Amino acid sequence: MGEFRRAYGAAPWHLLLLLGCFAVTGWIALRLAGEPTAGRMLLWFVGAAVAHDLVLFPAYASVDRALRGVLGRGGPPSALNHVRVPALGAGLLLLVYLPGVLGLGDGTYARATGLSPGAMVGRWLAVSAVLFAGSALLYVARRLSRRPR
């Protein structure tokens, strides 16, 4: 067992898990190969990867660097992580619901759900505010619990 770990670089369960992931990915690729929209899906996936690497990553890395400059590395608990986590949640929600938040595809959303998409901006802002408020409360609670008595 020790020799396998030295040769492979990880435990045997890691190799089994990785082979399982490759099997599932291959099965999905075979299922999508027969789809008439497979080319569009592949184009969207490649476009999303390129947009992330060339636009989004430099943008949020710059914002993170600016936050580190303003907040400092901080001691426990780090204020920086209490800004990063809700920002990540709000950003992911924005990406998932971006067409609705921007008011695009109103007819499609209304036909599919029977609801008006007009409230999506307010709901996204409310959820983002709750995420940041919860993180701020957690930060304050952690700071107060670590205060010397």
Rank of each mutant, 00 (worst) to 15 (best):
L43W: 12
L43Y: 11
L43F: 15
F45H: 07
F45C: 07
F45T: 06
V46Q: 05
V46N: 10
V46G: 12
A48S: 13
A49T: 07
A49W: 10
V50C: 05
V50M: 02
V50N: 01
V50K: 03
A51N: 02
A51Y: 04
H52P: 06
H52A: 08
D53M: 11
D53W: 07
D53P: 04
D53Q: 09
L54G: 05
L54E: 00
L54W: 04
L54M: 03
L54V: 10
V55K: 04
V55D: 00
V55P: 08
V55W: 04
V55L: 11
V55Q: 02
V55A: 10
L56Y: 08
L56S: 10
L56R: 01
L56P: 01
F57S: 08
F57H: 02
P58R: 00
P58N: 01
P58T: 03
A59M: 09
Y60P: 00
Y60Q: 01
A61F: 07
A61C: 12
A61E: 07
S62W: 05
S62R: 02
S62K: 03
V63E: 03
V63K: 00
D64E: 13
R65K: 06
R65A: 15
R65T: 13
A66E: 11
A66C: 15
L67P: 04
R68M: 08
R68A: 11
G69L: 05
G69N: 05
G69E: 02
G69M: 06
G69K: 05
V70K: 06
V70P: 09
V70S: 14
V70W: 11
G72M: 05
G72R: 01
R73V: 12
R73L: 12
R73H: 15
R73Q: 14
G74R: 13
G74P: 15
G74C: 14
G74K: 14
G75L: 09
G75N: 14
P76F: 08
P76M: 03
P76Q: 11
P77G: 06
P77I: 02
P77R: 01
P77T: 05
P77C: 05
S78H: 13
S78Y: 08
S78V: 08
A79S: 15
A79I: 08
A79P: 15
A79E: 15
A79R: 12
A79D: 12
A79N: 09
L80F: 12
L80I: 10
L80V: 11
N81R: 12
N81E: 15
N81S: 15
H82E: 00
H82A: 03
V83T: 05
V83R: 00
V83W: 00
R84G: 09
R84P: 14
V85F: 15
V85A: 14
V85L: 14
P86T: 04
P86N: 05
A87Q: 04
A87S: 14
A87I: 07
A87C: 12
A87F: 14
